[in-house]
Nucleic acid binder design. Structure first.
Lengths: 157, 157
DNA sequence: GCTCATTGACTATCTTTGACCTTCATTATA
DNA sequence: TATAATGAAGGTCAAAGATAGTCAATGAGC
């Protein structure tokens, strides 16, 4: 409930702003000051919470007048979304990224909540990390690709 | 009810809170302190008393700001047919049998057509029979079991 | 003797921190 | 004016810290 760590606080703060704005531009040192943490923690937050599968693009510039810019990606029609996600998945995908992708599909109403949960139930580490005989991330990618392809058919009908 | 073992006390304590709340979030070490036991006993209690058939799902996170979250769920009305199917699946299942099982669930209105097709898309020989390194039927069973378990409940409102 | 409960050593995962590196703009200097 | 020095950002990475998970040995109560 409120055993929030600093990274979560920073994440929440930024996402709050991004709900009202297409993008946000920050100065790393300032952020770090504001949240009483070291600058590299800002990088950590960005790297773990503002990834492309989660729907964000990040640009930055060093030197005088440097900045970090976080942009919320807006996806267009369902077909585009699906093929975009297929690209993201590729032939290996982590649990985090897979979950983020399903979340995106849900938010864009490509999937119902129930469908999303069904898919997720099978992509979890717990299920796929069985024996070390096969590559977990590769298998997850194969399954997720199959789901995405199927959703593409649905779309076409 | 008042067997004085610690595990029962912890269970009672948590369930008392869950009667008033949809979910509860604890810190394992804190709980352990509070009940004067070792941290892993909390895991034991959760594993034996907060299972899905008993109406709970558990999520957790490690590291700084870590937590264990217990969520009350609503069990579906179809648990009978679902557990029957789980028995049928066992730990290995052929494509044909898996398809027949999904068909059954569809006919019994446990699944929509779309949900059934989504599930099937991932249980096919084509998808699972990739490398011959692992046992295809075993993997299929694992995936199908995960689906069946997930179909057994919904999040309460 | 069985089953369930308790413990603790070891493991896995996530966060925080800091030392060191790279890039860019501005200013000083030959 | 071209270039070198300086300072001001942001980037990387690995170690240390903070939690939770697993598992097998041991204990307690039928």
């Amino acid at each position: 409930m409120d055993n929030q760590n600093i990274s979560d606080l920073i994440e929440t703060y930024l996402k709050q702003i991004l709900e009202r704005n297409e993008k946000i531009e920050i100065r790393r040192a300032e952020m770090a000051d504001q949240f009483h943490c070291v600058p590299s923690q800002i990088n950590y937050v960005i790297k773990t919470r503002f990834t492309i599968p989660k729907g964000y693009v990040v640009e930055s510039k060093r030197g005088g007048g440097g900045y970090i810019r976080i942009i919320k990606i807006k996806l267009s029609n369902d077909t585009d979304i699906l093929s975009e996600m297929e690209n993201l998945v590729g032939d290996r995908v982590s649990q985090d990224d897979a979950f983020a992708i399903i979340q995106q599909l849900y938010e864009n109403e490509v999937l119902s909540k129930r469908e999303g949960n069904l898919i997720l139930s099978v992509l979890s580490k717990q299920i796929l990390q069985m024996d070390l005989i096969y590559d977990e991330e590769q298998l997850r990618a194969r399954l997720l690709q199959a789901f995405l392809e199927r959703l593409g058919y649905e779309e076409a009908e």
